[in-house]
Design a protein around this nucleic acid. Sequence first.
DNA 1: CACCATCGCTGCACTCATTGCAATTTTGCA
DNA 2: TGCAAAATTGCAATGAGTGCAGCGATGGTG
Lengths: 218, 218
Amino acid sequence: MSYRVGVTTGPGLRERKKERTRQALVNSALGLFAERGYEATTIADIAAGADVSTRTFFSYFPSKEEILFADTEERLALALAVIDQRGPQDEPVDVLVRATTTIFDRSERFAQVLGRAAPIRLRMLFTVPAVQGMALRRLLSAQQRLAARLQTAFPDRLDRVEAAAVVGALVGALVNTMLTLVESPEQADELVAGGDVEPVLAHLRRAVDVAVRGIAAG
Amino acid sequence: MSYRVGVTTGPGLRERKKERTRQALVNSALGLFAERGYEATTIADIAAGADVSTRTFFSYFPSKEEILFADTEERLALALAVIDQRGPQDEPVDVLVRATTTIFDRSERFAQVLGRAAPIRLRMLFTVPAVQGMALRRLLSAQQRLAARLQTAFPDRLDRVEAAAVVGALVGALVNTMLTLVESPEQADELVAGGDVEPVLAHLRRAVDVAVRGIAAG
DNA sequence: CACCATCGCTGCACTCATTGCAATTTTGCA
DNA sequence: TGCAAAATTGCAATGAGTGCAGCGATGGTG
């Protein structure tokens, strides 16, 4: 058993290759989804496009849906980090709103900075039930993690239940509002394609406001 | 073309037979799910248990998941009705909370009055991703309908976006809290099997409170 | 009552996602 | 160079879901 001292041995060839294959799969999938649509693309197609066997696809992603969410973990991590960096004067709300809008800013929001995945995913969200289901399951799990982290950041302001309720209220308001504003894949496409984003954002701000000030505040 | 006057001709034989088959399918499915679990039950099994062909299953339910939700429409209708019956003095919050707790009372809450479906569904919710996804999709759609109805009930208090935000906040808080409180299928089983429900309800009341008074109220 | 247009049920063939298994190939390291 | 672990692959099988065409039951109609 020898130790690797001195040299910064990055990830070995194995790791790098694996990462490349992963990327190839994601690229292949996104390309095909965008071109022919989700249903019309088989896993065999995706694998072929990445030069691996069909069977190998499943050692990278457990299902066809998952590949559309390959980038989300990292975005959640970003939001969690925002929570960790609470200032001493911050209220839980401040931090949470900041974290949440970070996600929205960098994701379901509109193309520019975004990777390729988000716009395609957004479209599939409207057209493929399985994808919508997966998105919602991930959203719920993300909420749980946000709540846990928020509670950690404010140990003497919140208990677990309060944290969950707070996160749920904010995210719930945002999501339901978003769905009300953007009802069809066409509208989604339009926004992604650089439509006028401001009115949507304005409404989302109102949604945040409702959650923050309470339903009763009307 | 003749008119059916006088006699109250109920649904014809065709309809009645169809309804019976539908019930048979639901019963068969629930029985098998409870007995062997969801994955271990094939659609062929379900169909066999209802004395119809496999193919016929799909003319009643579009997918295996759907059969677990055969009873939900009616419960949503109940909640919508509660909204319609707003009193002149009611605030939107009052009505909404009343409607929402109606749903919780009669469903994901605990066995007693409930049909057979709810407890089984609750268990599958934790163990079968596809079922969870379906549940969340339905929940979102229910939120949209609740929002629309609430807006109709308070035309000059709410616009569509506010209504969506309000409903989203309340339901979001409830759902995320619920998930925090009940984390495993075992806990769910326990509650359904008549465990002590009061502490859970107490927490849910706090969640409602958070949503009503606002995240900031801490 | 006989007749016909629907409607529902069924079997069949097919596509595709997903999984377990066993054989083979690649990579990391001694 | 040589071996053990890890990754890739092909193969076979299961099960969900769909389109299609034939067949019998049902509900009027004359």
